[in-house]
Design a protein around this nucleic acid. Sequence first.
DNA 1: ACGTAAACGAGACGGTACGTCTAGTCTTCAG
DNA 2: CTGAAGACTAGACGTACCGTCTCGTTTACGT
Lengths: 206, 206, 206, 206
Amino acid sequence: MSTGSGTSPNAARRSDASRRAILRAAFDLVGEVGYAKLSIEGIAARAGVGKQTIYRWWPSKGAVLFDAFLMLSEDSGGSPALPDTGDLRADLVAVLRATVEELNDPRYDEPMRALNTEIAHDPELARTYLQRLERPMRELKKDRLRSAQRAGELPSDLDLDVAVDLIWGPLLNRWMLRGGELTGDYAERVVVAALDGLRPRGGAVG
Amino acid sequence: MSTGSGTSPNAARRSDASRRAILRAAFDLVGEVGYAKLSIEGIAARAGVGKQTIYRWWPSKGAVLFDAFLMLSEDSGGSPALPDTGDLRADLVAVLRATVEELNDPRYDEPMRALNTEIAHDPELARTYLQRLERPMRELKKDRLRSAQRAGELPSDLDLDVAVDLIWGPLLNRWMLRGGELTGDYAERVVVAALDGLRPRGGAVG
Amino acid sequence: MSTGSGTSPNAARRSDASRRAILRAAFDLVGEVGYAKLSIEGIAARAGVGKQTIYRWWPSKGAVLFDAFLMLSEDSGGSPALPDTGDLRADLVAVLRATVEELNDPRYDEPMRALNTEIAHDPELARTYLQRLERPMRELKKDRLRSAQRAGELPSDLDLDVAVDLIWGPLLNRWMLRGGELTGDYAERVVVAALDGLRPRGGAVG
Amino acid sequence: MSTGSGTSPNAARRSDASRRAILRAAFDLVGEVGYAKLSIEGIAARAGVGKQTIYRWWPSKGAVLFDAFLMLSEDSGGSPALPDTGDLRADLVAVLRATVEELNDPRYDEPMRALNTEIAHDPELARTYLQRLERPMRELKKDRLRSAQRAGELPSDLDLDVAVDLIWGPLLNRWMLRGGELTGDYAERVVVAALDGLRPRGGAVG
DNA sequence: ACGTAAACGAGACGGTACGTCTAGTCTTCAG
DNA sequence: CTGAAGACTAGACGTACCGTCTCGTTTACGT
């Protein structure tokens, strides 16, 4: 479950109560004091745990934070499939609007910024993130696009990875760098532009 | 020139030599030791400057770093206009390939990650960044798109901000979160997808 | 007037208003914040004077403080002669009781401790102190003892310096090191012991 | 052993090696650079110790210095009793001559000045000093005087505290304020004056 | 049921950097 | 050229955490 890769201590005897308390404390604290002021010392104190218990099982502050996100996503039963009503544009707009909601929720905003920052600066952590969280979520998105391909809404030779980037990239980028207000309306315009393209189309649309 | 917003000390007497030495040291150090280990103390020592001279003029480590970028961009005469050969797709591909090069250059990679994560965590800094660096660069991009509108390559009612996000967002997002290899080829596929859109087009274009 | 010894700046143009403001501020501040927290910076601010004006005319914090005492003593017309009623014991007791009063007055206690500390650590300052303040006061004391010699109350071959030390030394020592309560009663017992000596006397006493 | 009075950290786990290194370094440094330039930072560096280890166990620089003296006096087995040959005057002169030697030894001069000035400015430290160092030494002095009382050399109703002040006060005061050369001869004259008193005696004694 | 070995809470340790404060020097400007 | 103002280099202050290292104390196996 841990992000550590080397030879572990005797994991069999690991205290699950402490582990959960640490992850809970880490997630809560990052929301309260911000990422810059998050400290191992603070996490240990909040969790009622010795510092060594953290250093024993995680290699870095980012790894703790990452596991905290992992626990959260697992506790909530993992991510469900994207909605599939047969109307791709509507489904994407709905999903992105929900994402915008979440990104604007201060309860998630700060912790997610923290996680992204850690990923940006720690290649090892980034690799784990890709495998454990990003890839599964990306697969769900590609599943919806594949369904659209089967329905003839998208070409069968579409590069799905580029497609996912085109739809979600602008949103995440604007959020991360605060490049303007993040509204549901903006999300909708991005979806339309991504599906239709920037250039004028010969045929009728939608 | 500084990022500080409140009442400044007597800026007329400010030592320009110290200011430049600090920004130079900050930029060099962030490339050498990485952002996590960049310290005010280290910058002051490298610049041959008292710590107070930094605290007097900048409110945070991120602000120093930001001004360092600003100085660099101003010293190099600001950014030039994007190429305009009349072929939008080719021009965009060329620009994005160059951007990919830069993002893959370790000389710029680490400092730019540092700047971006600081922006992500500091709304005040983000505001300044938008005005001083992001907006001017975005205008250059929009200028090229406007030129394409005049040439009939893009619809005249196109939302240029969304267009810029669509083209550059995926690239920056993949770079920041290390969501896969960042190649010129990827850049090209993003440009094509953005221009043509994901959905099948009625007639062949360009 | 200054304690500085080297080549002075053009003393003719010296601003007497600034000089007095500085000495006044130094004396007041040492009583308010204590000696440890007394700073040149603080004195300059309180006096409404640039720091350089202090550094120009005094070599050290102690020198400023010393001049402050000097000014005070000169402004109050210098020390008057000790009382001489013809009864040495009574006169000494009266003087020492007054000294005890002064030493117990918080208005003088802290500044005098500060001055003594500076003297203890700065031989150069100590020399000046001896000449300008200690010696004059000691002469007044010796004058009173000489008068007693003439009156036959003290032997004519008495070492007056040792005598002064014997009478005032215990008091100052107890005050400085807080070696017990400093009362008028204690002062009286010291005078009696000093005059009569510790050993039993053959003849009748006083 | 520490001068701190409030609730201590877990003293059981205290590192004695660090404690001794700190006290040693403090004593050595105060002799080398003087009290004014003695810094916690310097002590920590010299002792090979983190600053926090000093702040954890001592409330102030003065307290460290004080404990350094305490350690020294305890390591050298504490002070022995004063000599008692039956001749009080000779014994006192011998002791005071030795004290003069010590006060003139630069190895002890500066540290003792530092300790004394700290005591002068810190009532809390003064209290501890009185109990732990001054009182024991004073008792040894009073013991010798009591012996003299039993031998009939001193009156049985003599105020021993005043007597001790009368003998040692002048010496310490002259030393602290550099009120003249501190010689064995001076010490002898003080002893004689203190024992015989300043006034002329009826009969010859001793 | 009992030893034993590990993980645990606690927290002292040598360090680094923080952001503030003061020292003493240097520069600019008004009079 | 003076004195006021204040920016400058330098470095100590006391605090917060870092990551490592004991301490005793649970806790859960393997006997």
